[in-house]
Amino acid sequence: MSLASLTKPWAATSYGFLDASAKRELRRKMLKAISVPGCQMPYASREVPMARGWGTGGLQVTLTLVNPNSSVKVIDQGADDGVNAASIRRFISRVSGASETWDTLAASIVQSRHRVPEEVMGEDQVLVLQVPNPEPLRGVEPNISVARQMHADADYGKLWLTLYEQIVRKGRIMQGAAYPSMVNGRHVMTPSPIPRWDVPKLNMARHLTFLSAGREKRLFAVPPFTRVEPLVFSDRPYRVEDHADLTCRRSNVSGFFMNELPIDGGGSAFEVSDSNLGIKAIRQAEGAPAEIGKTWYRNGEFSA
């Protein structure tokens, strides 16, 4: 054996940026994450050439999955052309040779911050959600070791209590995005800060979802056909954002999650948050070919 046999010919970086041992660790943890849906799996989380908190967890999962035949879509707040989405997508294609796409239907991997696309994802697609804080119990228990024990004991009483207190005090559950949800009837997870609108899209879905927090070094998964149930009381049904009746001022689509834009002189205008859905609708209106896939919401109603 020689020193040379232990290493490899010098290269500035590895394919897909991560070295082989980083990828193997992620693969092992991704398999465990699938096997125990919604359970946070610790991983080493290597530094990547992007600041922590900017999608480094999602990026590590994507870089493990990607190959030159992949087609990658990256969105931030629903938009493909958001500055950070553009930067991440460019990095992925640069280090992997994968093709870039804005079309949800054409992507083999969709990496996203804060949204699940409106078009239904299919059975060979992977959704990678960037997660800032993987711990749904952080608000009631900031100590990570104590919180871990609570998950081990399926002890979610404190979480239920805060939701109950909100109803008593405010008349409704005040949780905005990142609505805590029970996965496979056992582990409560944060679905990442997606709006409440998007959580039902993870329940009994056809696609596979990974959620990865690079800074906090935890990853978890929701396999296809897995129950994801927002924590609600039986007499207080789950409520998504009241966007069903809003219409996009650019594309005229309605019944989807919208961005609110304050306008001069008061009031608001709305634009569809899934920007590529808007683009497709505009193209269709202009008579250009643009296939809009089946959407999770139809006429503002969720219908899986």
Partner: peptide
Amino acid sequence: LTIAPPDLPELRANATFEALMWALA
């Protein structure tokens, strides 16, 4: 940043993992 295309071991591991991942999913 210049990235070489994947070598054979990399492609083999990538494709093998994809099979294992979907098998468990």
